[in-house]
Write a protein that binds this DNA or RNA. Structure first.
Lengths: 137, 137
DNA sequence: TTTTTATGTAATAAAAGCTAACATGTATTG
DNA sequence: CAATACATGTTAGCTTTTATTACATAAAAA
């Protein structure tokens, strides 16, 4: 029984999540439509959210508040996944081309990687994990 | 924002509590009838349970499993309260009569006090806090 | 044996949540 | 400006979940 399990256990009904995140039900469902979260469902088709889901929603909310639109948020989230995959699949840094000056493209990749690695070591992003921190000792 | 708040925030609907505690709705409501727990209510009168409530229910469940009946459980819980009051009201040990041998009554009081003090220092009762431990890091 | 406990079961009403459709305000773009 | 797209609000109809209450029952206690 590890953190992963604890954090992803579906426990909260949408009403609680609304309170906790200050998002409307409409918003929460909308973000699900866009696959930013994937809450579990009860037998009766009710959404049940995990700590992870709530963390995601808090992150989304912050981005929204900063004026980022869906596409942007998808980038941020997709970025995470993409980079995670990279790191998981071959456990070494992205190859850098031999050209003297990096292309913007390559630069971005490097930055992404840095962010991801910091995240994996829990050294960055105060927003990330807020919900969880709220509940842990 | 402290532990007390975190642990007593009403977050879980009864269905989740049933799963988490393996108690039936009937049982949970019954224990509420007997004031062993006092879950919050939504505007719509639905029970919403906190980590504390779930901790209590786990403790109740353990006692039940050990064959303790309602009256016994009330003793255990009431004991807690009563002794807490004692400790809170006058912050010193119960006076001991001058009689050479303590009455059974007095002996019990002393034992209670000991237990309570240990509890207050989190040095006793493995069952207590299980739920919370499940969720904290 | 009769009572009391603790829990199960069933009926009914109300609350909460789901989907789907349409409405709307605000940017963005031709 | 007009048209479009985006993000969210609103409403309606339906289903699931929960609450209350009453009655049933097995086991324990008296």
């Amino acid at each position: 029984m590890n953190d992963q399990v604890r954090r992803s256990s579906p426990l909260f009904p949408i009403s609680i999540v609304m309170n906790l995140t200050q998002l409307t039900a409409r918003q929460i469902r909308y973000y699900e439509e866009h696959s930013l979260i994937t809450p579990a469902r009860t037998d009766g088709n009710r959404r049940m959210f995990s700590f992870n889901d709530i963390d995601c929603l808090l992150e989304i909310k912050e981005l929204i508040d900063q004026g980022v639109n869906m596409a942007g948020i998808k980038q941020v989230f997709g970025l995470k996944n993409q980079s995670d995959e990279i790191i998981l699949k071959d456990n070494k840094p992205i190859e850098i081309s031999n050209k003297k000056d990096l292309s913007e493209e390559e630069l971005r990749k490097l930055l992404k990687q840095e962010v991801i690695q910091k995240r994996q070591h829990n050294q960055v992003n105060l927003r990330q994990g807020d919900m969880w921190r709220f509940f842990k000792n």
